[in-house]
Design a protein around this nucleic acid. Structure first.
Lengths: 200, 200
DNA sequence: CCAATTTCTTATCTTAAGATAACGTTTTCA
DNA sequence: TGAAAACGTTATCTTAAGATAAGAAATTGG
């Protein structure tokens, strides 16, 4: 486990500032709870059966969430630089994960272990701001997932793909098509057909 | 806007205790920020275009979240007694809602307006516990939505229905089938066929 | 209590997605 | 750099979902 550079800490601090700003005293305590995780391409952040013991902030690189169902690899989600990464359910509840999270390229992640997360929540110097940070973070992802559920309920695969073309530039640009297909809830073959239908 | 009875306040307090317990001093301030909303059957908690200005706790009754897409009514979600109800995205961001939330029967809801919610977050007596309450609430629904997205990605409609039979007793028992169908991401006709397939 | 509405099923037809395999292209990495 | 793996498209066949309509059963509400 390497040490975090000043630049990496600043990158996180700047993005966290969207939720909560730490003063110097708080920040000094805070950074004692952070660690750096480097993943090589294809290394896993977590695998099914394990409890996800950390929550991470992607400093660089990208990860993919996926399931293996009857031997088939099904992509569920992506996180890029400046996104957070965790199997939230497992991290929050302590239940084992059901999905894989894998680095798609060399990836550096700032991590907080569950132990340190709880320590910060119990540290009077930090508790209030960490509660707030946690609330805003959970609310952000709640909204993401709410939107995604709505898209499954109200849109066709073709409509979901068209929407992704508009608002999912990172995913479209950086992810292979068969991952995107799963993310949209369809097979790669089906996405290929949709693309052709759209051209006509 | 009627007053909340002691019993209604206790009902909420007991359920909120799963997230945070208020002492008497805090509780006295807290209840000044709560209100009671009674909805008749088919009345709306919020409609598209409106900003959702309250978050609610269902004391009794039930509500349905739905969209009108090309004139078609598509059910997205349900809340029953002791669930929370809100168009979270709209409540949290101040953007207009995109869905309807409608009472399915006479329904009583304990509500907190956005103004009062923010007031509690800014009240030093309450801020910490409200932040915590908000975090745990958002985390709870985040996990619900995460599971639901995963079910769309990894399961067939038939598998989703079988799972709901196991773990969605309230929905199965109390909701008409065409609402359940939409909730599963399919049409009512399709759900009817699935039910027959399962019997054979 | 009865007419109106809602709900569910069934049937038919259409459309699109899943499964599988083949093939050419691109990428990977040893 | 060259063999292997990964990727995207296309074709075929199968399966299931969507659209629509009709009719029976259940529920509702005046």
């Amino acid at each position: 486990m390497d040490a975090l550079s000043q630049q990496q800490l600043n990158q996180f601090r700047e993005h966290a500032a969207a939720y909560v700003e730490f003063n110097e005293a708080e920040w000094i305590i805070c950074i004692q709870h952070l660690a750096l995780l480097k993943l090589k391409k294809k290394e896993h952040f977590v695998v099914p059966g394990q409890v996800c013991k950390t929550i991470g902030f992607v400093l660089s690189g990208s990860v993919r969430y996926y399931h293996l169902i009857d031997g088939k690899d099904i992509t569920n989600y992506f996180s890029f630089e400046n996104d957070y990464v965790s199997s939230y359910k497992s991290f929050l509840t302590g239940e084992p994960c059901i999905s894989y999270i894998q680095a798609l390229e060399p990836t550096t992640i700032l991590t907080v272990s569950k132990k340190n997360w709880d320590a910060m929540l119990n540290n009077p110097m930090l508790a209030y701001k960490i509660e707030r940070f946690g609330r805003l973070l959970a609310e952000y992802y709640l909204i993401c997932y709410e939107d995604r559920v709505t898209s499954f309920i109200t849109q066709t695969p073709e409509e979901r793909y068209l929407k992704l073309l508009e608002s999912g530039k990172d995913i479209i640009r950086r992810m292979p098509q068969h991952y995107i297909a799963n993310f949209l809830g369809i097979t790669p073959v089906s996405l290929s057909r949709i693309k052709r239908r759209i051209l006509v």
